[in-house]
Design a protein around this nucleic acid. Structure first.
Length: 263
DNA sequence: ATGGCAGTCTCGGACTGA
């Protein structure tokens, strides 16, 4: 079973792109971020025609997350717990029946946090604290768990082309990286790191300044796994080739392959 | 050396992102 995450940067602008990728990659569950659409505006029919069930948690204009899956989830929850005042659509979680039990998968669009001297950075750190609390609750279930998404966190210096450029950025500040470490420290495994801890395994290249051509990228899209999921992980891949397609997203997919089967 | 993008909502340009 393949479980993927992809910040699609606008589902309406990326419909053809995503459909083509689904047909070639054939993932079983896809976590999308930045759909930039309300639920009613999501072009579900396109993906249903390809055999996917669609669950969305949208918002007008920006943010928004979704789950595409070969089989419908048994249960879906929308929004990250811990703050009823938070109106931004950045979290959707589904529980899927698989042979021998269930697998729980969340699509996460963690706040960017820039500029650092605005209220956006405290919002990011608060959101990360809430995510850690929720992850703690989910890990206590002792289930296969995949927390997949655009974390807007560069975990290590070797996860960007030029650390000096990112030194003061919300994606790389010590507090940001410490919060990410604390999340991992609950007992999660970074799927890409489980395969190889090499630097330069980028998942995002800016549209500006020829970043793709210069390989000026960053690794910010992550699959974080519970032990029960890590035990079944057989491979992790970054779908770098889609960045060179026509009208690409600035992010590329990260795909984990697991020894799970649909019921 | 410098500046360089793109999507949404909506039809001009503000807002957002990383």
């Amino acid at each position: 079973m393949k479980i993927a995450t992809w910040n699609i940067n606008g589902i309406k602008a990326r419909q053809e792109n995503l459909a083509q990728w689904l047909e070639t990659e054939k993932p079983d569950i896809v976590c999308l971020q930045e759909i930039k659409s309300v639920d009613e505006g999501f072009p579900s029919a396109t993906f249903e025609a390809l055999g996917y069930h669609v669950e969305t948690h949208g918002q007008k204009g920006f943010n928004g997350v979704a789950l595409l899956s070969r089989r419908p989830p048994e249960d879906v929850s929308r929004g990250l717990p811990g703050d009823d005042e938070d109106a931004q659509s950045r979290y959707i979680e589904g529980v899927f029946s698989v042979a021998g039990g269930v697998i729980r998968v969340a699509s996460i669009y963690l706040p960017n946090g820039n500029p650092v001297d605005s209220d956006k950075y405290p919002y990011k750190l608060g959101w990360m604290a809430r995510l850690r609390e929720h992850a703690r609750t989910l890990l206590a279930l002792e289930e296969p768990l995949v927390l997949a998404g655009d974390y807007n966190v560069i975990p290590r210096p070797q996860d960007c082309h030029d650390p000096a450029v990112w030194a003061g950025d919300a994606l790389f500040l010590p507090q940001t990286r410490e919060a990410f470490s604390a999340l991992i420290g609950l007992g999660l495994t970074d799927a890409v790191m489980a395969g190889s801890d090499d630097g330069g395994q980028y998942t995002f290249w800016d549209y500006q300044a020829g970043a793709w051509q210069k390989n000026n990228g960053i690794r910010i899209d992550h699959l974080l796994l519970s032990a029960e999921a890590t035990d079944r992980l057989t491979a992790t891949a970054i779908g770098k080739d889609v960045r060179s397609w026509e009208k690409p997203s600035d992010h590329v997919p990260v795909v984990g392959t697991f020894e799970f089967d649909w019921v």
